[in-house]
């Protein structure tokens, strides 16, 4: 079953057009990697899905519902959980408050978040702005999971983190995949991203130019669309 269906998405920032026709599907239990060089429209696509940017043309359906007219909080309540780029926690709330502020009933509880990221448990009473970058990222993932999303969107979740912390985040992503969590993920570390992805979608200049499985991703395609 297709959770998320994006067709012909065109998004504008004022007079400048950022997306020129993005097509994307995420099915139930699937991990989809959204790829492309910097500035090709990955974050804009995610922002459009989450209702943070209103799109001009095309369609976005989540669980069969057109999310175009919905404000972002309603889209989130439908089951879209976003971990935004740049580990954006609520800095002046404690770890515990960050996690419970948005909690909704479901399988994901504080206990499960603790099991996924044991580091967070040790920091429950600390303000988010006193955490390391890696811990903030874990908190951002934990906070999104506490909303019990049907689809988790990770935007550059490992960017700027120490290698050992990246490994923890990737281990968590693999755990989530094993539990059947649907994930749309943007990340530059192809060596980690490709083994976890079921399908890849490549954007070039705001348009979907290639879709396929990681096995179908040839060096030629990689060089053409993902190389520096």
């Amino acid at each position: 079953m297709s959770f998320l269906t994006v067709r012909g998405l065109e998004t504008f920032y004022g007079p400048s057009q950022a997306l020129f026709g993005v097509d994307l599907d995420v099915n139930e239990g699937e991990v989809v990697a959204l790829m492309g060089r910097n500035g090709m429209g990955k974050t804009t696509t995610i922002s459009s899905i989450c209702g943070l940017v209103k799109y001009g043309a095309g369609s976005i359906e989540f669980l069969g519902q057109d999310v175009g007219p919905l404000p972002s909080h309603r889209i989130a309540r439908l089951g879209v959980g976003l971990v935004p780029e740049g580990r954006r926690c609520f800095p002046n709330l404690t770890v515990y408050e960050n996690l419970i502020a948005a909690a909704r009933p479901g399988d994901w509880t504080l206990e499960r978040i603790n099991n996924l990221f044991p580091r967070l448990k040790e920091r429950f009473d600390q303000y988010a702005n006193t955490l390391s970058g890696g811990e903030q990222q874990m908190l951002a993932v934990g906070r999104a999971l506490m909303t019990n999303p049907r689809l988790l969107i990770l935007d550059e979740a490992t960017e700027g983190l120490a290698p050992v912390i990246r490994q923890e985040i990737w281990a968590a992503v693999r755990d989530l995949k094993r539990t059947g969590q649907s994930i749309l993920i943007v990340d530059k570390t192809l060596s980690e991203l490709l083994p976890v992805a079921d399908r890849c979608v490549i954007l070039e200049k705001g348009t979907t130019v290639w879709t396929g499985t990681p096995a179908e991703l040839t060096t030629d395609i990689e060089n053409r669309y993902l190389g520096v």
Partner: peptide, 24 residues
Amino acid sequence: SRFGAALQAARQNDERLATVGIHP
């Protein structure tokens, strides 16, 4: 309470709170 945490979160960042499903 959870409401209090969300209220303080709204003071810090509206948009971020909306992305976790709460209408500020």
